[in-house]
Design a protein around this nucleic acid. Structure first.
Lengths: 332, 332
DNA sequence: ATGAAAGCGCTAACAC
DNA sequence: GTGTTAGCGCTTTCAT
């Protein structure tokens, strides 16, 4: 069997309580006993049983992460950054993919709560804010990532999605485009990007195309379908802003299928700066999210709440950035 | 405070033990008490404390997954498949990225063991088999994914890597290529693929190029560098087999940089059939891994070992498949 | 500075 | 059928 504190205690000729104190650096113990206990613990290769201390209200050093879809490279990347920072701080990640489905979001939250995780990271859409509200009452540290919830005082780490949409669209406008389509998902972040898109258009006195259609899901197929619709309703489109790179690749493919050359006949701006932006042909001009910073900020904020029991909520909004590549060009 | 079984017991006017029995469907209890207890549990929104039952040697319904890199879309995809099957069976995943680094592999194994996970999935390379050997002694259910360990009697789910390499190379040979380069990582699976590559070559009486160089890591840059070296040492290369799609994209880019057209001047076969294979230009001919099946088999096998305490180890080897796309063509 | 004892929430003999 | 009791491994008063 694995050694317990009592095995150490017996060997050291002290009580279990003393061993516990040494191991936790609590109470007062003499240098002598401390060293003795530490040595024996080392010798026995003692590993604390986290379940037991968890029962006593201690931390279990595990954090729950709810993402829309782990197999989506963007989320996988952010998850990895969070994981890395977590490990630096001594925490593990339990990851759950929600597919933006409410019932799954709900199920996973309660699952994680059951497992007594120290905190939860909400990177799914959570269109149904009541789920988040419920979490507030539970008094479990958590932070919302990728979207803001202005109506709730909760921890948030997000990029300025509005700015992202604005940046993307402004770039297209600067290139001389006036007929710019929008492709996105019907989720909070994308709707914010849409507002930025609208803002850029109206600032430049450009008519907003009414036929904005949201894609069903993030996939090439979905991107293609939505683009086909756009092409149908607006013959003279010269540019499209897609709310994520994969959708942008869908746009790219549909354009190619329709005999349009990118960027000559159609300029495209993507979002996220995922691997797709760098490996598609042509490479995508896109809006980059500072994933490194996001991962670090999220974890730091969460651990701050967990360990220091700080109660003041924070909203951290990071800046997205335009990355120029080959999918946009001046409209002639 | 969250309700415990004693809260239920008090309200139902029975003992804690009885409640426990009802909740676990163990022992014998009358329909009446059973319903009473169940109703009260429901009313109180009782949630069992998994830590407490874990202390009693019960399952914690959590499984550890060690992958090389979660931000690599291929691993993210497999992780997602495993996650899905896990949730179907009632298990969560704690994910750790090892970067193929031995110390991390070791650290995460002991971390997961500390957390008393019910089982561990080893999807990292584990070049140092002693780590796996140590796990065997711990009597923790685990399964190795993506590589075989012929010298050890452990659970394995993997594809036939040798066959994969053979398939890829044979395809190239059929297309008339005789000067075929190899690009891969110095890890077990890739070395097996290399053997398959060699087999195909020698079966067809083709000289093996001696300058096989392994890439440092899975990245476009690494793929480009290695390809540049290959081009230098072998001027008349007409095809390259890359051990993963990202490396293949690197090959693609380097070829383009050197003014070679794909597939006209250089045919490329990738591996994994990740999103890259579908979004690169031209799209990659590649060897697909049955990720769905892998995820399911892994989880099923592991849970079988956990729940039924089955001790007979299983080695499940799945077949990879050649997917024809646009990056290979007949050599003229 | 150290130890005895109670208890975290639950399970599992064993009694009744 | 149901309750009593003794732990699981650890933390934490409270004595000493």
């Amino acid at each position: 069997m694995k050694p317990t504190i009592y095995d150490i205690a017996k060997e050291a000729g002290v009580s279990g309580a003393t061993v516990s104190k040494v191991l936790n650096n609590t109470g007062r113990i003499s240098e002598k006993t401390r060293n003795l206990v530490l040595n024996i613990a080392e010798k026995l290769n003692y590993q604390p049983n986290l379940m037991a201390s968890a029962l006593n209200g201690k931390s279990i050093f595990t954090i729950g992460l709810i993402v829309p879809d782990l197999s989506n490279p963007f989320f996988a990347l952010v998850a990895r950054k969070i994981e890395d920072r977590g490990h630096e701080l001594g925490y593990n990640l339990v990851i759950c993919s929600s597919d933006y489905i409410r019932t799954k979001e709900e199920k996973y939250i309660s699952l994680l709560l059951n497992k007594k995780v120290d905190g939860i990271i909400l990177m799914s859409g959570f269109e149904d804010i009541s789920l988040v509200k419920a979490l507030v009452l539970q008094d479990v540290p958590f932070v919302v990532v990728g979207r803001d919830i202005p109506s709730l005082d909760v921890n948030v780490v997000s990029i300025d999605n509005f700015l992202g949409g604005y940046l993307a669209t402004s770039h297209l406008i600067e290139q001389g485009h006036t007929n710019i389509g929008f492709v996105g998902l019907d989720v909070w972040s994308n709707r914010e990007r849409y507002k930025g898109y609208i803002k850029a258009l109206s600032e430049n006195g450009i008519n907003v195309c009414e036929n904005t259609v949201y894609a069903k899901e993030t996939s090439i197929i979905s991107g293609r379908k939505i683009t086909a619709k756009l092409f149908d309703s607006q013959q003279n489109l010269t540019a499209i802003f897609a709310c994520n790179d994969l959708l942008a690749v869908g746009v790219l493919e549909e354009a190619r299928a329709k005999g349009k050359e990118v960027p000559k006949d159609l300029s495209i701006v993507g979002f996220d700066d995922t691997v797709w932006a760098q490996t598609s042909y042509p490479k995508l001009t896109t809006i980059a999210q500072p994933t490194d910073k996001i991962g670090k900020k999220v974890m730091d904020l969460l651990v701050l709440q967990i360990e220091d029991k700080i109660n003041r909520k924070q909203q951290i909004i990071l800046k997205p950035e335009l990355i120029l590549r080959e999918s946009t060009t001046r409209n002639k």
